[in-house]
Design a protein around this nucleic acid. Structure first.
Length: 423
RNA sequence: GGAGAGAUGGCAGAGCGGUCGAAUGCGGCGGUCUUGAAAACCGUUGAAGCGCAAGUUUCCGGGGGUUCGAAUCCCUCUCUCUCCGCCA
């Protein structure tokens, strides 16, 4: 969530920024500032009364020790009166604090200065492109046909076991997926990221910490019996490793990577975009997360973009990098770059990674702090990115590398699969 | 699933209902000493809110209660550990 001080300092700027994100209720900023003022007044009122209660109580103790019962009784009466007066103040304070929190949590992160305005993906900015689109032979087909032809992913049986949108990988398909996970993790750890294998379910506090709750509640699978959520990305458990901690400045940056399946209900999405591996309810993904000094986060963002770009280059896939416009960005993000790969048989770009700087939005929720050079406690910045989401990578690898005699895999991939051709 | 024990500051570990935001040790930071380091010694060292400041309020797993006063008593929830059972 946003830091109150940012809103207080320049409410108009905050509202303008929210406008770039197409946030519908900028007036919330004013409401929040008003609530905060009220909170302060109540707090002061409460404090002065409570101070009196405390000091009088101490006097009672002293009087009792001296055996001055009568005087003590008089003081007790005083305290009782004070407490009666305190009761409504304290109740009001609780209400206002809760209101303030509830409203503040509704505000998305403010976009960084270089985030372009815009409402739809059409307004995203292409930062750069790489690789070259392949020329497919005449009989080339989309991946949903290829997976059937080579019998490597079976959606029908997945639907039988679970439901629609759950893929059953098989044979060379299963091996390809496992190999890619292995490769991506190796690639990340070689760059200094520590590998984690997190729990695939999280509690409410964790889901709140990274911003999934309350904003994206409907997107997650939920186990009400135990109040757990299936993770929509390993960003959630991995970033929450440091929740409620004050880390040493010298430990920054903290670089973490992890593989996990990601579970998404994708409620309300349907149509041709969801065909095959384009959109599924469970997909595999390797994630990178960094916890950094606030002065460094934009440098680190560039570093992470480069890191993922090189990974895509090694896969020999045509890609492009987009800077998302305000309207297309996630709730908690201050700036996001999306990576898309070109799916040659579908003739469209598929998102395979999203790299974001959350600045203090997540750390303020999770209370991840560090001590700066002056010994003051400050919030860290958090960033994360996919490296990479598997199904769409697989879709592109299949489509772009298909030949009439099977699918030939890029060198780096075949090194991990142990075979260079799917046939 | 059954029985029991516990949850205190970065860690370990004390804490009679008032003088406890909390002993002590370790660790961290600063200093003395030293050519430098180690050792030793001295000092310092939790978080959050309000306030220019002095200061003040809140926090001893979460929530509730008893009391003039709760880290200390009661209830409840969560988590951890031990034993038994079950089990990949």
């Amino acid at each position: 969530m946003l830091q109150l001080q940012v809103l207080r300092q320049d409410p108009q700027k905050a509202k303008d920024k929210l406008g770039i994100k197409n946030f519908a209720e900028p007036q919330l900023v004013d409401q929040i500032i008003a609530l905060d003022e009220e909170r302060k007044k109540l707090q002061q009122d409460f404090d002065s009364n409570q101070a009196k209660v405390n000091s009088t109580s101490k006097e009672i103790g002293a009087l009792m020790a001296k055996g001055q019962k009568e005087e003590a009784e008089t003081k007790k009466q005083e305290v009782a009166t004070l407490k009666v007066a305190l009761q409504p103040i304290s109740e009001k304070l609780d209400v206002v604090e809760k209101q303030l929190h509830d409203e503040l949590v509704k505000l998305p992160n403010l976009p960084a200065d270089i985030v372009p305005p815009g409402k739809t993906p059409a307004e995203n900015i292409v930062v750069r492109e790489g690789g070259s689109k392949p020329q497919l032979f005449a009989g080339a087909v989309p991946h949903w046909d290829l997976i059937k032809k080579y019998d490597i992913v079976d959606f029908e049986t997945g639907a039988k076991i679970t439901g629609s949108g759950f893929a059953l990988f098989k044979g060379q398909g299963a091996k390809l997926q496992r190999a890619l996970i292995q490769y991506f993790l190796d690639y990340n750890t070689a760059a200094g990221y520590t590998e984690y294998h997190p729990p695939f379910m999280v509690n409410e506090a964790s889901a709140f910490g990274t911003g999934q709750l309350p904003d994206k509640e409907g997107q997650m699978y939920h186990m009400p019996e135990d109040k757990y959520y299936m993770i929509p990305t390993s960003e959630v458990p991995i970033t929450n490793i440091y929740r409620d901690e004050i880390v040493k400045a010298t430990d920054l940056p903290i670089k973490m990577t992890g593989y996990s399946p990601c579970f998404r209900r994708e409620a309300g999405s349907f149509g041709k975009d969801v065909r095959g591996l384009n959109r599924v309810h469970q997909f595999e993904k390797v994630e990178v997360v960094q916890i950094v000094h606030p002065d460094k986060s934009f440098d680190v963002l560039d570093e992470m973009v480069l890191h993922i770009e090189k990974l895509l280059q090694s896969l020999e896939l045509p890609y492009r990098i987009l800077r998302l416009c305000g309207g297309d960005m996630g709730f908690a993000s201050a700036i996001t770059y999306d990576f898309e790969v070109y799916s040659a048989a579908q003739e469209k770009w598929l998102e395979v990674s999203s790299v974001s700087n959350f600045e203090t939005y997540q750390s303020n929720r999770m209370k991840i702090r560090f001590k700066d050079d002056n010994g003051k406690t400050q919030l860290v910045h958090t960033l994360n990115g996919s490296s990479l989401a598997l199904p769409r990578i697989i879709a592109c690898l299949l489509e772009n590398n298909q030949t009439s005699a099977g699918i030939s895999l890029p060198a780096i991939v075949s090194k991990y699969t142990g075979f260079d051709k799917i046939s």
